[in-house]
Amino acid sequence: MDNTPTSSAADRFPAGRLAFPHRDLTGIGQLERHEILYLLDQAAQWVELNRQRTKHTELLSGLTIINAFFENSTRTLLSFEIAGKRLGADVVNMHAAQSSVKKGETLIDTAITLNAMRADAIVIRHGSSGATQLIADKVDCPVLNAGDGQHEHPTQGLLDALALREALAQQGRGSRDALADFTGLTITICGDILHSRVARSNILCLQAMGASVRLCSPPALMPRGVEAMGAQPFHDFDAALDGSDVVMMLRLQSERMAGQFIPSAREYHHLYGLTRERLKRAAPDALVMHPGPMNRGVEIDSDVADMLDRSIITSQVEMGVAIRMACLDVLTRSARGVEGWS
């Protein structure tokens, strides 16, 4: 498989810092289309590296990256940790699992503490929307949002775009060109849209890349104003699936299935579970995505999740490491004195 971009980035994107002028990555909402494409393009080389036996460079050698996770996470934390280590950085994980007590001033104090330890990049996950921005305003180094409350999870949006572009190219429906986008594609995101930062980052990212986005959930889990964001809301999953080129299922938190939002898990599966039968309503080669971790048998059936030709769920995980490497590389270029980036 050829993962080299068909054109070099140099002649397709603005030079140096102009290609990505942000100090932090707090959300897809802050990015222009060409900046998204630039990060995807930069990730391609790391996809390649990650498939070699020796998955290591010294690009970020000597830099300290702190993964400050105020909310439990296994996959995202692991992905960021691997990304930092493969780039040669010193990676430190800080688990500060949140108690129910409001830890606000502690959050600012933590930011100031991390700053005083002279981190070169800080990756934040926090349970409150806007927490990453709050920390970014208080520190001197780049801050990457690894998920803040129900606001955004930008690297998830980017990795989904990368995985999707790769899969479309493999199917012969798209290309690996640095400027290839999703124009003409209909993508359905189904699940707990209301509480999902993954959904928000994906709506923004996929639309910026030209796709039309459908959202599907029961009314209680559909936020207001999604039409104003350009997305089309559905409550009937079959109707939403009709003609969709991609189906992205979201995880439904178990506490939401106990009667507050949804009567039961099996009732949710009855209305919104992606089964092999339901998938037939989508376009013939429709791709299936899920940000993980999956509730098999609830929002997605195992035989759909494991379909080799349609499910790109494991590719999403693979692209995640590459995307995070690209983000860490790009955001630290200024500090590393890379030509054109200071």
């Binding site: 909402g29 929307s129 129900q150 955004e152 928000r200 936020p223 207001r224 104003g225 964001m229």
Partner: peptide
């Protein structure tokens, strides 16, 4: 307040 701004920001909102 539930609406586009709260949805974009991901804030807990009520109609």
């Amino acid at each position: 307040t539930a609406g586009e701004v709260a949805t974009r920001l991901g804030l807990p909102s009520a109609p």
